[in-house]
């Protein structure tokens, strides 16, 4: 099992790199070979990654989603899988190099600095965690895609404004398509986030009755991470209402989508770094030394429930 896990740690970033390379090659020269193989490579990578998650789950007796780097790895596969579905439905590969690039980056960081976390919180073995975590993962995947498509919208707008009719102009889809994809992703992400928050609250109340009093006291609905998540949810919901009823469209709407995602990263980073939260299910022993050094945010201010 350990050998297999070590193999996946090396294999997965390489596979993501190959997929990204194929999409980059396709973007650059529109060669028939990557056109034929890029999607297939992507599908194989997703399957191998899913297999690695299954193996990891058996090895850890829990979903590998406790530590931020484990979450990053799952976000990579979720992004790639969602992108492949979109690509196959819309028959457009023009945005593949960006999404697969982001997936590669996430997987590379995750695989390079992650170790299995043997002393992770027992909460992660609770069945309630799986449902909550999967919904969180899906909602963040949707919001990440919305961010990517909003960025591409702004890039294409810039190309058109500056009359630059190069590769980006030719390969990227229409502004209308990019906007539809970005808003469509938010439309999926917002209800998923709402469900994940509701399920998280229910799980928390359920746990309170089962945990010892001092541990149960730490489970607060006023946890900064939960509060920030509600603010993010409300922000995106207002955006959707504006788009639907107030005619918020075009460049301004996409700037808003980019801004919103940037705020997610910033606020979650700040909360993780400066505020105590029960949403830390790992210890520093569960993380590789370089990661602890590079990402102090992941190890400082920790109050684990273990």
């Amino acid at each position: 099992m350990v050998v297999l896990l070590s193999l996946f740690k090396v294999l997965l970033p390489l596979m993501y790199l190959v997929v990204w390379g194929a999409y980059l090659w396709l973007f650059q020269v529109d060669h028939p070979a990557p056109r034929r193989w890029s999607t297939r490579l992507g599908i194989v990578t997703v399957l191998v990654h899913v297999l690695s998650v299954v193996v990891q789950s058996f090895a850890l007796h829990r979903l590998p989603m406790g530590a931020p780097l484990e979450f990053a790895s799952l976000l990579a596969v979720s992004l790639l899988a969602t992108y492949l579905v979109i690509e196959l439905r819309m028959k457009a590969k023009g945005t593949g190099f960006v999404v697969t690039g982001m997936a590669f980056l996430l997987e590379f960081i995750a695989s390079s600095f992650r170790t299995t976390a043997p002393d992770a919180s027992p909460l992660l073995r609770d069945p309630g965690f799986a449902g909550h975590a999967v919904l969180v993962l899906l909602s963040y995947t949707a919001l990440s895609l919305s961010f990517i498509y909003a960025i591409l919208y702004l890039v294409q707008t810039r190309q058109l404004m500056n009359r630059q009719f190069g590769l980006l102009f030719r390969r990227l889809p229409a502004l209308e398509t990019l906007e539809r994809m970005s808003i469509g992703a938010v439309k999926m992400g917002v209800p998923l986030m709402f469900l994940s928050l509701c399920l998280g609250h229910l799980w928390m109340y359920d746990l309170r009755g089962r945990l010892e009093p001092d541990m149960a006291a730490q489970l607060s609905p006023w946890d900064p991470k939960i509060m920030v998540s509600w603010v993010i949810f409300l922000g995106y919901a207002v955006g959707l209402v504006g788009n639907r009823f107030l005619g918020w469209r075009g460049k301004k709407m996409n700037i808003l989508a980019v801004f919103a995602f940037a705020m997610i990263l910033l606020t979650l980073g700040v909360v993780q770094h400066f505020f105590p939260s029960f949403h830390k299910f790992y210890s520093s022993h569960g993380m590789a030394a370089p990661a602890a050094a590079l990402f102090p945010v992941l190890t400082v201010g920790r109050r684990t429930l273990t």
Binding site: Q156, L160, F169, P173, A174, L175, E176, T177, R180
Partner: peptide
């Protein structure tokens, strides 16, 4: 083609 870079449908 140029118009379709704005409006796909």
């Amino acid at each position: 083609e140029l118009a379709r870079k704005f409006f796909s449908r």
